[in-house]
């Protein structure tokens, strides 16, 4: 007897019907890079996997006016190869390229990364930095949530039973905004990061910051923009002193949210340097 059944969905409508079937407890299957590791060791808490990895509507990467649409079944490789994302979301492209090795990037999807919501999920800081919204669909209808509200903690989300992430949207950043992603990992390719950072920014004609976003990864239980740090940078000239101060402030905000723990001593120094370095890349004139 197989431990679970498999069915392939060919459209969002079909996936949602299958996922909401009251008779068979079902879960989406994307690239399987988290699911297959999980079911190897644990008893699956569902009776059926609904494969959404080839649903055409969930594979798109498009620009519609001032908005970018990225399907939830887009793989890291597809995202990294997309000219639309290369132009509008360098931080997301860099995050995708930092994931696993090529085989993981060819299978793993953005939707799976967000739904799995590991503390160290690499797409989260960049999606949050871009103010990305996750679009969810179930038999009871559609709703949209900021990614930072969808992920409620490590491996916890506001996804309800039968709900599918169909796609993400985010506003095209204003002209001239650059973004960047940096991650600390023990090994270049396969390390699952313990800290990462996405930043976006722009300087005005006077060389002062007129747009800035900062979103650390794996630093707080819920991913969020560090608006406190953004506020101290806005309108200022990004001198070495200011960027160093922004780094310290980032560490302070993190500690304010998580309290001091065994890992704080390391993380405090690391996040400071990471914020400074990533902001420097985003704000490079």
């Amino acid at each position: 007897m197989p431990r679970f059944d498999y069915v392939r969905a060919h459209s969002v409508a079909e996936a949602v019907q299958l996922l909401g079937d009251p008779e068979i407890l079902s879960r989406p299957l994307g690239g399987g890079t988290d699911v297959l590791v999980f079911v190897r060791h644990e008893k699956p808490p569902y009776d059926r996997l609904v494969d959404i990895s080839r649903v055409p509507e969930m594979k798109i990467i498009e620009r519609h006016g001032g908005e970018i649409v990225v399907g939830a079944a887009v793989t890291y490789t597809e995202a990294a190869e997309s000219p639309v994302l290369q132009e509008a979301a360098a931080c997301l492209v860099e995050a995708c390229l930092s994931v696993g090795g090529p085989a993981i990037r060819n299978a793993g999807t953005l939707g799976g990364n967000v739904a799995n919501a590991a503390a160290c999920a690499d797409s989260l800081p960049s999606l949050v930095c871009l103010d990305a919204v996750a679009h969810l669909c179930s038999r009871s209808g559609e709703r949209a949530l900021l990614v930072s509200d969808l992920v409620t903690g490590a491996n916890r989300t506001a996804l309800q039973r039968g709900e599918l992430i169909t796609h993400f949207t985010f506003p095209v950043p204003p002209a001239g905004v650059r973004s960047a992603f940096t991650k600390l990992g023990r090994r270049n390719a396969q390390a699952i990061s313990r800290l990462s950072m996405a930043a976006a920014g722009r300087l005005d004609a006077q060389g002062c910051v007129d747009f800035v976003r900062l979103s650390p990864g794996a630093a707080t239980s819920q991913p969020r923009r560090f608006t406190e740090v953004e506020a101290m940078l806005l309108g200022q000239e990004p001198t070495d002193e200011l960027l160093a101060a922004a780094g310290s402030q980032t560490a302070e905000v993190m500690i304010g949210m998580t309290g001091r723990r065994w890992s704080t001593e390391y993380k405090e120094v690391a996040i400071q340097a990471l914020a400074e370095r990533t902001l420097r890349r985003a704000l490079a004139g």
Binding site: G32, L36, V37, A103, N106
Partner: peptide, 23 residues
């Protein structure tokens, strides 16, 4: 068997994948 070593690599539609992580 958990995607870390690549000994199970195959190409699926022209792309490298870990066959231990493909259902």
């Amino acid at each position: 068997a958990v995607g870390e070593c690549g000994a199970c690599s195959v190409l699926m539609d022209g792309r490298l994948v870990n066959s231990c992580l493909v259902l």
